[in-house]
Amino acid sequence: MQDAGVGQAPGRCCFEDTGVGKSSIVCRFVQDHFDHNISPTIGASFMTKTVPCGNELHKFLIWDTAGQERFHSLAPMYYRGSAAAVIVYDITKQDSFYTLKKWVKELKEHGPENIVMAIAGNKCDLSDIREVPLKDAKEYAESIGAIVVETSAKNAINIEELFQGISRQIPPLDPHENGNNGGIKIGKPSTQAGPRCC
């Protein structure tokens, strides 16, 4: 659970969303290419993943957040202490994009100050039934200073890029804090928190 290697900057990320394939993004992320780095010890709601970024290795502790409305009140427990949040929406469902905006708002208001936000439009393999234009997502992301990518957990498109992007944005932790934190949390139209120091 803890980084031992020198130069590793761990990040904690939370994922938020519901029914938009957030869990599959995480699974895809931890499974692809880096099999030797996965440690899905208990289950898919918490995973760790080490991502090379420049000369450093970033270790992501990925916290999945239950996205249903009934668990909404618990979300702060998950995104607090996160360095980055990945919010996942479904490009084939306009509703999920609205939910995403709500999450962003909540994170802005109650989330950690320097949280890195990333917006992932999942299911880009289904672009023929797309409801959310990429342009909208890009504009919105720009307005909130978030990273945006369209992903396909099914076809492993852009998943790696998503985390690489987060990795680059997460400020390097000073050595004192190194090794303790950082997590990514996953939620429904997802909010995700990236590595943050606490």
Binding site: K22, I42, G43, G67
Partner: peptide, 27 residues
């Protein structure tokens, strides 16, 4: 506690063959 969670996960996954995230686990 982790062993308990593992047990729960095992039950969930063995009986359905798929992976579950927090959406399913927390309930």
């Amino acid at each position: 506690l982790l062993r308990v969670c593992k047990l729960i996960y095992t039950v969930m996954e063995n009986n359905s063959g798929r992976m579950y995230g927090a959406d399913d686990f927390l309930p």
